[in-house]
Design a protein around this nucleic acid. Structure first.
Lengths: 222, 222
DNA sequence: AAATCCAGTGCACATATGTTTACCGAAATC
DNA sequence: GATTTCGGTAAACATATGTGCACTGGATTT
């Protein structure tokens, strides 16, 4: 974490000489401190300002230079969560869906994705239902955007072409809550329970299959 | 908070003379105090022992006569949530499902049920993803039992007779998470947003429809 | 070179927290 | 009727919290 002094050609891209860069940097440190604490099992809504400041290696009063209160930090985390979800879709778009056994393939990719970004997902899964009102609302908005993008992507690759876009949106909403729910389960897996892990993702796959079966059979104007 | 001296006819059904009754009573007051605080917008995982004791009208040290810590109180709340869910099924069994437009009917009943027990549902929805590990696990267990009972009931009334019971269980799990997710949404509804409320329950109904459509089309051993 | 800005410091404050300890008084047991 | 049991109390403790205030020193502007 010490300022690396590389023997590279230039030193312009490295040092955060400018003040706004410095500010941005400790802001980031605060955010990551909160995430680190979440990673240690604490739930965000139970964090204290001083705890976060301490973890970030900064005096409590300095916190106020960046956020009005913890809630505002939380909103930044939500935003980060939104970015993460968008990246998931982007990668899926780039790499395409595994051609054989699409659902199980996607689920495995998703599982890996969640595990590699466990902190953000832990935050989202944790504050989605509890926490403060404003954070919950922000997460809902982010989920909804995610569902919209997913609906667009499904449309683009020609899945379920006969569905209206509002129906597609509704179905993606269901998929998203199922995904986030599964994320919560995945994150709580003991690291050495391959048995439990196996049946968990199997369950996840089957639930998605039910949803897409239902979607395929859906007829507007019932 | 002074001991009310009622001028009622009898005093036998009133006074909790026995000591264990008294104990049970303040235990209950602690539980209800926690729920009351949740009702005021605080999230359970952020409650403090003193806060709860204060709300219950009891000195902090007295708390320890009933629970080792807040986590243990939380487990009592989970249990209460389980009972609530079981009651939902019991009432559904007793009253039967509304014959016309079953799904929408059930959803409206459920909505009312949630609103009338908003505190317990707020607790469950809030700690389901966040909170402490032990509470989360307890909630998961309760959910799973609920899903099992629901599967049994569906079987009993002859719904989806061709599905294996493990499949039925998996589908009920999906229904349960969808229900709890909807509960969270319902509880966050502003009290004067009939527009939003309408589209919310409409969405809920349609999601359930997708699930049951998929379930009906499910073939084992795909 | 001088003036200004401002992210981060150090310190103080009132208040809140979890937990322990000795104690009381009424119910329960003898 | 004497003795024991045990919910609940009162006070104290060490520690934690959010927030305000004057400050400082290096970057930024003039």
């Amino acid at each position: 974490m010490s300022p690396t002094k590389p023997a590279s050609t230039r030193s312009d891209a490295e040092a955060p000489v400018t003040r706004i860069e410095r500010k941005q940097r400790t802001r980031q440190r605060l955010i990551e401190a909160a995430l680190a604490l979440i990673g240690k099992g604490r739930s965000f809504s139970a964090l204290s300002l001083r705890e976060v400041a301490r973890e970030a290696g900064v005096v409590p009063a300095a916190f106020y230079r960046h956020f009005r209160d913890l809630d505002e930090l939380g909103l930044a985390l939500v935003e980060m969560g939104g970015v993460t979800l968008r990246r998931l879709l982007r990668e899926a778009r780039r790499d395409g869906i595994p051609p054989t056994d699409m659902l199980r393939g996607s689920v495995l990719i998703y599982k890996r994705f969640v595990e590699e970004r466990s902190l953000v997902f832990r935050f989202i899964a944790g504050e989605r239902g509890g926490g403060s009102r404003s954070i919950r609302d922000a997460i809902r908005t982010e989920e909804s955007h995610f569902a919209s993008e997913m609906a667009q992507d499904l449309r683009a690759i020609g899945t379920l072409p006969e569905l209206s876009s509002s129906t597609l949106q509704m179905i993606c909403g269901l998929v998203v809550t199922t995904m986030l729910n599964a994320a919560s389960d995945i994150l709580d897996l003991a690291p050495d329970q391959p048995r439990r892990e196996q049946e968990l993702i199997e369950n996840f796959v089957r639930q998605l299959r039910v949803i897409f079966l239902g979607a395929a059979r859906w007829r507007e104007e019932v």
